[in-house]
Amino acid sequence: MIRAVALGLVSLVVTLIVASVLVFAAMQVLPGDPAQVMLGVNAQPDTLAALRAELGLDQPAVARYLAWISGFLAGDLGMSHTYGVPVAELVGERLAVSLPLAVLALALSAAVGLPLGMWAAARRGGFVDRAVLFFTQLGIAVPNFWLAMLLVLVFAVTWRWLPPGGFPGWEAGAGAGVRALVLPAVALAVPQGAILAQVMRQSLIDTLHQDFVRTARAKGLTRGEALRRHALRNAIIPVLSVMGLQFPFLLAGTIIVENVFFLPGLGRLILQAVNQRDLIVVQGVVMLLVASVAAVNFAVNIAYALVDPRLRRPA
């Protein structure tokens, strides 16, 4: 266990360091001068220079990187050029929308996808299996933003059950907030859930063919008991790694789906910030996204070790 955690931590730290350098370097390559964008094309050269000095843009790159990263570690992501507020505050506001959305979507996809996959594997070749295969094929092929539009068309425009977009803010009450997130979460969850169901089904079918399942049956366990007590835990291991890989997809997906539903989340923030050359915001948000992906990978590795004694206690 110590070994798994230690290896995971080392790789997490290395990933974060390399990623921060890459993100910072990418920002330097971006054409366009933030000071110029803020002041407009008619700005006087001396005001421009003054603003650049104020923003710290006249410092060498290494110094700016160190300043940025040490601030980042202290929770200070700098000041947004365009919004005039601390980036941390801005991100915090947006995260209050994006994070519940991602969690809701992940929970929905797992809650529906995993049982469907298990059910199909247990009834392999039967009607349930074929139905699950058909619908997961379809679910994987549907772009989430199109699904989002169809959901709006049906549930918001035609039936008027749920709001078509926008976010009332959590001040308006948890119920109103969750209502605004239901459709986007479903749109994000359907393709991911379909993938999870397929991976779960295949992994469980493969595991059911393993010798130790036959051994369990030879001890007198019924088919269902052997599946529940022996196959399932073994089958979940590849599913975990797929869930880890899905997380970046989910984040990318939120950027677009937030646009469809006019949600004030991180995705919209990053699109606006790029357009306005608000580099300090872009840098902060991208770094945050990459860090969350790395953290999820770390968590997945720990989960592996918890499930699998071969990683916990190598012989």
């Binding site: 010798d211 130790f212 369990a216 073994n234 699998d308």
Partner: peptide, 13 residues
Amino acid sequence: IVFQEPLSALNPL
């Protein structure tokens, strides 16, 4: 019954 492959016949977890 005792099967042939002693490793794969046991549940690794």
